[in-house]
């Protein structure tokens, strides 16, 4: 399909443009590491070890076979033991992976990031992260101030309204949106679809889309939301698309693309793919099971 051939072109364009903006160094910024003054060399980064290639069983019956087994699954195999307990580096790596996941759940998307992405920021009825985690009902609602803000920022009846949300991972939005958003907007514009300015909604659940639908009445809404982090990655993002979003919409009426992160579907590719998906949904005037069926 011509539409899908378009993806590669869009991805190449967007990545090219992003690279130019970032300058010759090209790479994404490395996290700052604290080196205490007066100390010598740092210890090596625990998270840098490729667990699937790290076999700790000292004298296995068949080392080559064990290495193959480890490559067949991301499960933490061949870790060995001290008595019945795991070795120290295995235990610390497990704790490290959980730590980064927890930090990502409890962390906040920075105001700088929201400004840099030119997003209009509002908040659901949740007052803080704790309330967000325990009151899914409040994460689906916006107060009067927030509704007024979005009315000011976004005209009614647009073709597409994009919403970015922290969800259960602040890192997911920060890691993926810079590449995903331009690819999505550019992809849509190349097929003649216009988007409202993107909104950022703090402490949002997926179904906040329904409120946006009632308020702004776009033909379709896309919500990009951080997934609950696993130990494998804390940066995974999901996209939910709803045609004619409205109160009482069924979950099954939303089209989902999940697992957007470096190790899954990379952000720029996901953006381009989403743009074709949104176009398809607009043309079919249906999303979710109604689109498939």
């Amino acid at each position: 399909m011509a539409l899908e051939d378009n993806i590669r072109t869009i991805v190449e364009q967007v990545i090219g443009e992003l690279d130019r903006r970032r300058g010759p160094a090209g790479d994404s910024p490395q996290p700052a590491t604290a080196v205490p003054a007066g100390e010598g060399m740092e210890l090596s980064d625990l998270s840098g070890v490729d667990l699937q290639r790290y076999l700790q069983v000292p004298n296995p019956v068949n080392r080559l076979h064990y290495e193959e087994m480890k490559l067949s699954t991301p499960a933490r195999l061949g870790v060995w033991r001290c008595g019945t307990r795991p070795l120290t580096d295995t235990l610390l790596r497990f704790r490290a992976d959980h730590a980064v996941a927890q930090d990502s759940v409890m962390g906040e998307v920075s105001a700088d990031f929201i400004a840099k992405m030119n997003m209009v920021a509002v908040q659901t009825l949740c007052q803080d992260k704790d309330e967000y985690l325990t009151r899914p009902d409040l994460g689906r609602r916006l107060g009067n101030d927030a509704l007024e803000q979005i009315r000011q920022a976004c005209p009614k009846g647009a073709q597409v309204q994009i919403v970015v949300a922290d969800g259960l991972s602040s890192k997911a939005a920060e890691a993926n949106v810079p590449d995903l958003l331009p690819a999505l907007i550019q992809g849509l514009s190349s097929v003649g679809v216009k988007c409202n300015p993107p909104l950022f909604i703090k402490y949002a659940r997926v179904a906040v889309m329904d409120v946006i639908g009632e308020e702004l009445q776009p033909q379709a809404a896309v919500i990009l939301i951080g997934e609950r982090p696993g130990l494998g990655t804390a940066e995974s993002l999901s996209a939910y698309i709803g045609y004619h979003p409205r109160a009482g919409m069924l979950e099954s009426e939303r089209t989902v693309l999940s697992n957007i992160h470096r190790g899954g579907t990379p952000a720029a590719e996901a953006g381009a793919h989403l743009s074709t998906l949104v176009k398809k949904i607009l043309d079919a005037k249906a999303s979710g099971v109604k689109l498939e069926g």
Partner: peptide, 8 residues
């Protein structure tokens, strides 16, 4: 115990 390749 702990060596999965005993089944190799």
């Amino acid at each position: 115990a702990g060596d999965a390749t005993i089944f190799a």
